[in-house]
């Protein structure tokens, strides 16, 4: 009995060894190349700029941004942040932490930048940026750049110079301009603005035709509603009307290049003005919708040309 089981074990040993051998196999060999997951994205800025050198440069994709900015990642993600490039710029005694957010679109970068801009920020000449003690920030193309000092009182002058240089590199790379209409939504709403601006990169308000939407909540006499604008033309509005009808919109209307209707008890409409799509969402009644739309139209027509 013992002899027979020993023999059986003897016959079984080689397959077990072969299995052990085979189980060690992997798809990738790190001695030959790195698996694709480990390959990081490229830093969009050079490792050295004049007297400045970048230490610990790193790129984090959107889903890992929290590692650097725990708790704040959602803010940037809602503007369509793609990645966060970080590092520390060092030059003769100066140390500035870089937080460089890259967005899907320039509007996203500008939106996130506007949302964080402090009231006392001193505007930078020639570029979209500001400086406060301990911080300089720039919105350039698809990038939103922050340079933070170790101490809150630090003079931002050296960082401003660095930010300018970086902005010229970044803006050139992205080659993207922010459309005018998108910038002054908050100005349009003026005192009636009831909430912060929002940026909805795609599928805004549940409509697949609305992408790159900037919106703001506005309070008027007949009630609150959301004003929005996005790139597009009459075709976008037509597609929106079609989607609205297809999803079960009620009392739909379509007149003078403007379409709208009610769905789930909330009224919305969209139309084309000044080469972009504008509209109102989440109005409680048809009257409120009309009031908001005329207010929006009036303010858009009578607004002063921004300098």
């Amino acid at each position: 009995m013992l002899r027979r089981s020993l023999l059986a074990a003897g016959w079984l040993l080689p397959p077990v060894l072969a299995l052990l051998f085979a189980l060690k196999g992997r798809h990738y060999d790190e001695g030959f190349y790195l698996p694709p997951a480990a390959a990081a994205s490229a830093l969009p800025v050079p490792g050295a700029l004049g007297a400045w050198t970048l230490e610990g440069g790193d790129v984090l994709p959107a889903d890992r941004m929290f590692e650097k900015i725990d708790g704040k990642a959602d803010y940037y993600l809602q503007y369509g942040a793609v990645e966060l490039c970080s590092g520390e710029w060092v030059a003769d005694g100066q140390r500035w932490d870089m937080y460089l957010y890259r967005f899907k679109e320039a509007q996203g970068a500008r939106g996130a930048y506007n949302g964080e801009r402090p009231a006392d920020g001193k505007p930078l000449e020639g570029i979209e940026g500001y400086a406060v003690p301990g911080q300089a920030a720039v919105s350039a193309g698809c990038f939103y750049l922050q340079l933070n000092a170790q101490t809150a009182e630090a003079d931002p002058a050296p960082a401003v110079e660095l930010a300018r240089t970086l902005a010229s590199l970044l803006g050139g790379v992205a080659g993207d301009e922010v459309p005018d209409a998108a910038v002054d939504l908050a100005v349009l709403a003026g005192d009636a603005a009831a909430g912060t601006e929002e940026y909805l990169p795609e599928n805004a308000f549940g409509f697949s035709v609305f992408a790159g939407v900037r919106s703001i909540r506005v309070r008027l006499g007949p009630g609150e509603a959301v004003w929005f604008t996005c790139p597009g033309d009459a075709a976008t509005v037509a597609a929106y009307a079609e989607e609205l009808a297809a999803f079960g919109g009620e009392e739909c209307f379509d007149e003078d290049g403007m379409a709208g209707g009610a769905m789930f008890g909330s009224w919305s409409l969209a139309g084309v003005m000044e080469g972009a799509v504008w509209g109102v969402q989440e109005a409680a009644t048809r009257d409120a919708l009309s009031a908001h739309w005329s207010a929006l139209r009036e303010r858009l027509e009578t607004r002063e040309e921004s300098p």
Partner: peptide, 19 residues
């Protein structure tokens, strides 16, 4: 056979973890 396999697996594309 195991020796031949191990030898063949030590190929120019890498060992891929095989001992």
């Amino acid at each position: 056979v195991l020796f031949a396999a191990a030898f063949a697996l030590a190929s120019q594309g890498g060992l891929k973890g095989y001992p």
